[in-house]
Design a binder for these strands. Structure first.
Lengths: 234, 234
DNA sequence: AGCTCGTTAACTGTCAACAATCCGCGATGC
DNA sequence: GCATCGCGGATTGTTGACAGTTAACGAGCT
């Protein structure tokens, strides 16, 4: 096996798994903005000590999903629609333009096949209305391309932007578009990548991301998450 | 004392101080890309245990200043000029546009005075050639405005972008412009803020930040910092 | 009543010891 | 010679205990 084409397994330390569990709880909406996260609770529920939990919380804090105040604890942070539209989506656009441009000449046939199977999975998920899997494959598509760009800062910032965008659409704008548009758009992206034409790729990408920024303007703004004083009684 | 105008002292836990020490060592160039950071060394030098050091490293990792590989350690990460120009500066522009727009109606007379004194300090620093203080006041100027915007995600992303930009200019493009332009540009920004006219503020800001993205194109690209195998013998 | 000040429970912050993993190097076998 | 295996030092990952801080509660004073 000379050409290293193995998917290079993700690092799985305890702290990474704790981070993933908490992040998916937040992104999935089981932890809502304003909810407190108590280290002891998490560590006892997950049967680990508080060390890894603390490190996970530090990471989530840097990802903008939680805030913590010294000696007072950590709570889940909300995102205002304004910040999503005016900051997160424009940043995402900057990142992905850069990433797709750099990944384009580096994508192997195996990569394109992997993307194709993700698109196929999206089609079937849309067909049976499995929105969770649809979102999951959506993220993986972009993750893969961005990973192939081999630009460390681009990847790092992407990892901090993407969960917030996803949390926002999951929590506050659940029905932003027909679930059938998503697979089609990614199919177009994939076709553009196969064509290896940078201009086409970037134009398609731009259209794709802008689609997602135009959410229902009647949706309520969400600007919760100020410093908490006092705590809820049981 | 009804109107809360106290500068609200920064949280000073051990982990915050360790983070600050390491970050300033990286941004200041005393730790260079590729250098290893060993938890035990840091903890013994700073006379603290490894816990806070680990949390500091997690935070710096999220700020993109270091990378760590499981069970193998942490090392300082470099930034390529391409990533600075194509990602970090555009993101900075997005953030500051948003922040200045939101801060504009919220800035108090005291805030404007504080900005004025920063500008004054920049003038005197430029006069005696104190580039460190100049850069320090530069950052504080933008920090203050962004803090006043009261947009949590904007602030959070700023904190992760700014150190990288600063590290880049400090390490790789030390003489990007005359030290006398900096105070003047901030003077203009301050005047625009005093005028309370959004369009003027944004135009001035844009010019200011773009100035900084146009660095000497002959400067060497810096793309170090891949995964390390093996370790240097003493 | 309203304010101030101890008291206290619930947390977070910090530490030092222990466990797990990686890397280099030399022994071993072919 | 050269690949493979396994040992050992260095360093990171994890744990449980202890110390410090916060905010709510209630007694005492005015």
């Amino acid at each position: 096996m000379k050409p290293a084409v193995l998917p290079e397994l993700a690092p799985s330390s305890l702290r990474h798994r704790v981070t993933d569990v908490l992040r998916s709880a937040i992104v999935g909406g089981r932890l809502r903005p304003g909810d407190r996260i108590v280290e002891e609770d998490v560590s006892s529920q997950l049967k680990v000590s508080r060390g890894p939990v603390r490190e996970a919380l530090r990471q989530l804090e840097q990802e903008g999903l939680v805030v913590s105040y010294p000696y007072r604890g950590t709570e889940v942070l909300g995102v205002s629609q304004e910040e999503v539209e005016d900051i997160l989506v424009p940043i995402r656009l900057t990142l992905e333009r850069f990433a797709f441009r750099h990944a384009l000449p580096l994508l192997t046939a195996a990569d394109l096949d992997a993307l194709a199977s993700l698109v196929a999975s999206m089609h079937s998920a849309a067909a049976i209305g499995d929105l969770d899997r649809l979102a999951e494959q959506d993220v993986r598509f972009h993750d893969l391309v961005i990973a192939r760009s081999r630009q460390p800062h681009c990847q790092q910032i992407w990892r901090t932007i993407e969960p917030r965008v996803r949390a926002h659409f999951r929590r506050d704008a659940p029905a932003h578009s027909s679930p059938f548009e998503l697979p089609d758009e990614h199919q177009q992206l994939l076709d553009a990548l196969r064509g290896r034409d940078e201009a086409t790729v970037l134009a398609t990408l731009e259209g794709h991301i802008r689609t997602y920024s135009s959410v229902d303007p009647a949706a309520p703004r969400d600007d919760r998450g100020g410093p908490r004083r006092g705590q809820a009684k049981p």
